[in-house]
Design a protein around this nucleic acid. Structure first.
Lengths: 344, 344
DNA sequence: TTATATAGTTAACGCGCGTTAGTAAATCGC
DNA sequence: GCGATTTACTAACGCGCGTTAACTATATAA
């Protein structure tokens, strides 16, 4: 355990086992097509075990041109990341796959300023074999560059007109379903607070679902009842205050993010109103805390872990040169009815 | 932008600029002690820019023996990670530092089974220059191995008897302060639900603070009022139910994790009781949602981002061979009084 | 004028490993 | 018993870069 022990290389293992380094490599990597006698194999494995040999991954990468690592790339600021109630589920889902496939997971945050270069450099530097892109923005020009490059990448979310493979839910349909539920309870004046600014694709999609639900019920949408939030509870708090102060009447609100909904609910409470007695609330995402909120929040369940896992699987296909079975995978959502909506 | 463009190496840059590869390396890495004429430097920079040269990090690592990457190592299961309301703050804090230092961040999850090897292999594989260890467990023998190895590592949390540098808060004192606040409001029958099983160091420390507060107020602790939760809201829900069903009387509860507290609060509500009217609740961590809970949760504020940043800074010192200024850094906590505790 | 320092640059080695082309010995067919 | 095959292994190259030692040309000192 001394600290001056030299690094153990495959050459050391070879010497110890009395074979060549090539043989060590063949044995340890289970290379097909080369015959290794059982006793030689055994000797090598024992030597490696005894010396505590761990291959140097930089050398492996350099020689094999594969890093065995993938990147999770986020475009949001560290501040927003800190209150992202969704991230743990994503990371948990990714870790499940990466551990089982013996991959490493790298977290990258690229800022809006140097996006155009960031993606490319990430892959060109060969730190990762491919990447999963979180919450893409429609105005992200760097993504266009990615499409023309040879870099394996999977989108979590959907980007209109992009050929990048993607994993997503049908945001529009899910939002429509949620709002239809409110309508079925008798609500007709329904407000909407988005999850994010309009430049993030999911936001307008969910708004569209909201509008479609209203239209299909013969309710003409009131633009004054729509607010665009910005991911965090603070923004939900503000937007709800804005709605309440607008003096537009509404009996229910569809908040396209549970995280934002937490803030919105606080604003309702501070205004002396109650959920669902005065205002019914429908969320979106079904984060782990929604179930324990007061009242328990009805919401569209987003299969976050499954999304992450599927994205990871697709990415692995891409890395291995196979185009994935489905280029744009849509996972199922589910409407979870709890106690935040009441019938009129 | 063709996909068949060969990788651009420093040799290409050298050829393009009409100099040697060595000169390219000197210019691009700003190596001291070698004089490069301004015009040569300029030529190299232009060539690199024009060709879109991005150094291959595997080759850099192999040659320089530095990865410019650090790892965040968690021992908890992917399932627990998914509901960790704390993780985003940690990652956000780390990203701030790593971006500014041009480092990469790797997320690792080591399972309890092969812990003993895991830490060592991580570093020996030279994927990372050092690591930050989250929520260490007291019975983690692999950590002992780390201490004797030459691997830069910083603990987030404290481990009794470990010489590993650490960043933490004074859990005992913070918990004591929180419970003293309850006592000052007149509570004398105070229950306690921990954040985690006793094997995670922070849990017993916070319990100790709870006990110290009671003792200093001349209240003899009731062991029947203590429950050990398991990180997530579910466990909080269960433990609170267990407390309520025990028929032991209590007017307040100290929950040593806001995340757990959310579940506990739901249990109280489902039992037909109210916070703070029937039971006052004091949390710990002050996660971003506590402020928006109903009622807003009083809690000890844990400077999560700052903890992450400090851990990162210490780790960088370690990697550069300097022992950090303070080996065991304790950051300040703050008692945030909101509306979940009432005076008796 | 000769020795010496300095500025500017490069040849060449090594980091640790994957992999191809090849070698030597054992086995086989007839 | 001799070439043809199979079995078991290895020498040697290259991945792309950092870095040391050396080399050339010019300026300075003796």
């Amino acid at each position: 355990m001394g600290s001056k022990t030299k690094r153990i290389t495959s050459q050391d293992v070879a010497n110890c086992a009395g074979v060549s380094r090539t043989t060590v490599s063949f044995v340890l990597n289970n290379v097909e097509g080369f015959q290794i006698s059982p006793e030689t194999r055994q000797k090598v494995l024992e030597a490696a075990e005894q010396l505590g040999y761990v291959p140097n991954s930089a050398a492996q990468t350099l020689a094999s041109r594969r890093t065995r690592a993938i990147g999770l790339v986020m475009t949001r600021s560290p501040h927003h990341i800190a209150s992202d109630s969704f991230l743990p589920q994503i990371i948990g889902g990714l870790l499940k796959v990466t551990r089982q496939q013996n991959l490493r997971l790298m977290i990258e945050q690229v800022s809006a300023e140097h996006q155009s270069q960031a993606y490319l450099e990430l892959a060109r530097a060969k730190r990762i074999d491919g990447m999963i892109l979180l919450t893409p923005r429609m105005d992200d020009e760097a993504l266009r560059v990615l499409e023309n490059a040879e870099i394996p990448a999977v989108l979590m979310g959907h980007l209109e007109g992009s050929h990048l493979p993607s994993v997503d839910v049908d945001n529009r349909a899910a939002a429509e379903q949620a709002v239809l539920h409110l309508i079925s309870l008798g609500h007709r004046k329904i407000a909407c607070i988005t999850n994010a600014p309009a430049s993030y694709t999911a936001a307008p999609q969910r708004v569209q679902g909201y509008l479609d639900a209203l239209n299909s019920a013969g309710i003409s949408p009131n633009p004054n009842l729509i607010r665009y939030a910005d991911f965090d509870p603070e923004s939900g708090f503000e937007r709800m205050n804005s709605l309440l102060q607008s003096r537009e009447a509404f009996t229910a609100v569809f908040v396209a993010s549970d995280n934002v909904a937490m803030g919105a609910k606080a604003a309702i409470r501070e205004a002396g109103l109650r959920v669902p007695d005065d205002i019914s609330m429908m969320g979106f995402d079904d984060i782990p805390w929604s179930k324990y909120a007061d009242p328990p929040l009805s919401a569209v369940h987003l299969p976050a872990e499954a999304l992450a896992q599927q994205a990871c699987v697709m990415l692995l296909d891409l890395i291995q040169g196979q185009s994935p079975a489905e280029k744009h995978l849509n996972l199922e959502t589910e409407l979870i009815v709890r106690k935040s909506c009441r019938a009129l």
